[in-house]
Computed example of a mutant assay.
Amino acid sequence: MRILVTGASGFIGGRFARFALEQGLDVRVNGRRADAVAHLVKRGAQFIPGDLGNAEVARRVCQGVDIVVHCAGAVGTWGHYQDFHQGNVVLTENIVEGCLKEHVRRLVHLSSAALYGDGPGLLDVREAPLPRRFHDHYAATRQVAEQKVFGAGEFGLEVLVLRPSPVVGAGDTRLFPAWIERQRQGRLAIVGNGLNKVDFTSVHNLNGALLSALFVDAQALGQAYNIGNGQPVPLWDAINYVMRRLQLPQATRYRAPGPAYARAVLAEAACLAWPGQPEPRSTRAAVKRDCRDFTLDIGRARQHLDYRPKTCLWSALDEFCAWWQAST
Rank of each mutant, 00 (worst) to 15 (best):
T201L: 07
L188K: 04
I190M: 11
E158I: 11
Q185G: 05
Q250G: 14
D172T: 00
T201M: 11
M243P: 08
G169T: 00
L157S: 06
N229C: 09
G222R: 05
N226L: 00
D237E: 14
R184M: 15
G186C: 01
A251C: 06
L214K: 04
N207V: 07
G222K: 13
R244T: 10
I239W: 01
I190C: 11
R253D: 09
A170M: 06
V198G: 09
P249C: 15
Q231P: 06
R184P: 09
G186L: 02
L195A: 14
V203R: 01
K197W: 05
P232W: 00
L160K: 04
Y225Q: 00
P177H: 13
W236D: 04
L248A: 01
G192S: 10
D217W: 08
F200D: 06
L248Q: 08
I239H: 00
T201P: 13
A213Q: 05
L160G: 03
T173R: 15
W179E: 12
V167C: 04
A224Y: 01
N205D: 15
V168C: 09
V198P: 04
P232L: 00
N226C: 00
M243F: 15
L246H: 08
L211A: 10
Q185L: 12
V167Q: 06
A178Q: 13
Q231W: 08
G230Y: 01
G171F: 13
L162G: 03
R244Q: 15
R163L: 03
P166T: 06
L211R: 11
P166H: 10
F176Q: 03
R174E: 15
A218L: 13
G171D: 12
R245D: 10
R245E: 12
M243Q: 10
L221A: 08
M243C: 04
N207F: 07
D172M: 02
Q185N: 14
E158Y: 12
Q250Y: 04
